[in-house]
């Protein structure tokens, strides 16, 4: 086996691989630099988050988007105090994540060979989340049409939707060509992640989830509160872009 690097790195392979690496990282400077004498600091050298944009689906087709919103609303059903997954933006969140780095498996190791291994060896799929959603949503609709009188998932009444999801969760409803159980687990994870993430990413609209649980959000200083025990923290949540009341032109998707 070749061990030492010796003369094995070709300039081309290095260039190819680092080029890919540069795209993968965000707006931040990624060119190598020599630092001496002073701390390197450039004006506007920061790397603020990129907000989800308003507008049409970026990854989902219209039909997929409808299914996703229906799923989001069953995973997080609306109630009188708090909106559900659909109105709080979880489907938009998942769409923007799939269109972005998460969907593209940015930064992950995606070199072959792809060999199926034990579960504790982690995912070994080549396609990543984009493929899982594309195939999973289509297979879910096909399964519903076959079982629920020709109806797609989004068109089912809520109690039938819940039954379908329960069967999926328990492995009693098989999807064609897709592991339905793990597809649903992935969907739950992503939808709930969107519910609790900062609203800048498209979910958790108006900080609905944070208000619901009593999480004050992107605050930074609890010096006065660490010693106050068993007392409810009184201030409402703030997001990274503040609160709607603070500015007429609040950014973030809504």
């Amino acid at each position: 086996m070749e061990t030492g690097l010796g003369p094995v790195v070709s300039r081309r392979s290095v260039l190819l691989s680092t080029a890919a690496f540069l795209i993968a990282t965000s707006s931040r400077r990624t060119t190598a630099k020599t630092i001496s004498g002073v701390l390197p600091w450039e004006p506007n050298g920061g790397n603020p988050p990129v907000a989800a944009k308003l507008g049409p689906w970026e990854f989902f087709t219209a039909e997929e988007g409808r299914a996703m919103e229906a799923l989001a609303d069953r995973i997080i059903p609306p109630d009188p105090q708090t909106p559900g997954g659909k109105d709080s933006g979880s489907a938009v969140f998942v769409d923007r994540q799939l269109a972005g780095g998460y969907g593209a498996q940015e930064g992950l190791y995606v070199r072959p060979p792809f060999i199926t291994g034990a579960k504790n060896q982690g995912t070994q799929s080549e396609g990543g989340p984009r493929k899982e959603y594309r195939e999973g949503l289509a297979a879910l609709d096909r399964a519903c049409q076959a079982r629920e009188g020709g109806k797609r998932f989004a068109d089912l009444p809520d109690d039938r939707k819940d039954q379908v999801l329960k069967d999926l969760e328990e492995g009693n409803l098989k999807l064609e060509g897709v592991d339905g159980k793990s597809f649903f687990a992935l969907t739950i994870k992503d939808v709930q992640t969107g519910f609790f993430a900062d609203p800048i990413y498209g979910g958790n609209r108006d900080m609905a989830a944070w208000k619901m649980i009593g999480y004050p959000g992107a605050r930074y200083n609890y010096l006065d509160w660490v010693g106050r025990h068993n007392e409810r923290f009184p201030l409402p949540p703030v997001s990274m872009t503040g609160r709607a009341e603070w500015t007429s032109n609040n950014s973030g998707a809504r």
Binding site: R28, K33, I35, L39, P40, W41, E42, G45, G46, N47, P48, P49, T193, F196, A197, D198, Y201, G217, A218, R219, Y220, M240
Partner: peptide, 17 residues
């Protein structure tokens, strides 16, 4: 190179996602 003013300022650091 990483430092607080550019990479983890209090305006963007509280980002769990």
């Amino acid at each position: 190179w990483r430092d607080a003013p550019t990479d983890f300022p209090p305006s963007q650091m509280q980002d769990e996602l």
